[in-house]
């Protein structure tokens, strides 16, 4: 849907300083462009629950982090996300890859399609579903709105193969 350069440019437009991420087959190819962009630092974590905590520390230290993970990582993030977004009320924005949304050829019947949106709703994360490249500006607009309201938010980006 997006090239790495487009995602890096989007991060720059958002004012992001650090992208905290675990790769998948959509997000991983964005990493090199993020790494070579001035003013952006890629922080690789071992599991996604850590991403929220790293982002929390960055935010508390005055930086502007973005969490970039697959929806599977959202599922495993629960307690960290609860504490950071809801106890500490840190307005961390995330880009979440929606596995199998565009096709299910690698994982027919992928249960990510069943659980991703209800889980985002359960965690009270306001998200925008992005299914076409033309919606790129919608991500930026949602990010700006969340930033101005000092609340968390997410862009849920439709992915193809797992």
């Amino acid at each position: 849907m997006f090239t790495g350069d487009e995602m890096a440019a989007l991060c720059t437009a958002m004012g992001v300083t650090h992208v905290v991420s675990v790769a998948d087959s959509t997000i991983g190819p964005w990493h090199p462009a993020i790494e070579r962009t001035d003013g952006l630092r890629l922080v690789r974590v071992c599991r996604e629950g850590e991403a929220w905590a790293v982002a929390a520390g960055l935010y508390l230290g005055g930086a502007t982090p973005l969490v970039m993970i697959q929806c599977t990582g959202l599922f495993e993030s629960g307690d960290a996300l609860r504490n950071i977004l809801h106890d500490w009320k840190l307005p961390i924005f995330s880009v979440i890859g929606y596995r199998s949304y565009l096709n299910q050829t690698t994982l027919p019947g992928d249960t990510c399609l069943v659980f991703t949106e209800p889980v985002l709703d359960a965690w009270r994360i306001e998200y925008r579903l992005i299914t076409a490249p033309a919606q790129r500006d919608e991500i930026l607009a949602h990010y700006m709105a969340c930033r101005d309201a000092s609340k968390p938010g997410a862009a849920l980006i439709a992915e193809g193969k797992a």
Partner: peptide, 8 residues
């Protein structure tokens, strides 16, 4: 959290 703070 410490890692994020240390980087920032």
């Amino acid at each position: 959290i410490g890692l994020g703070l240390a980087l920032a």
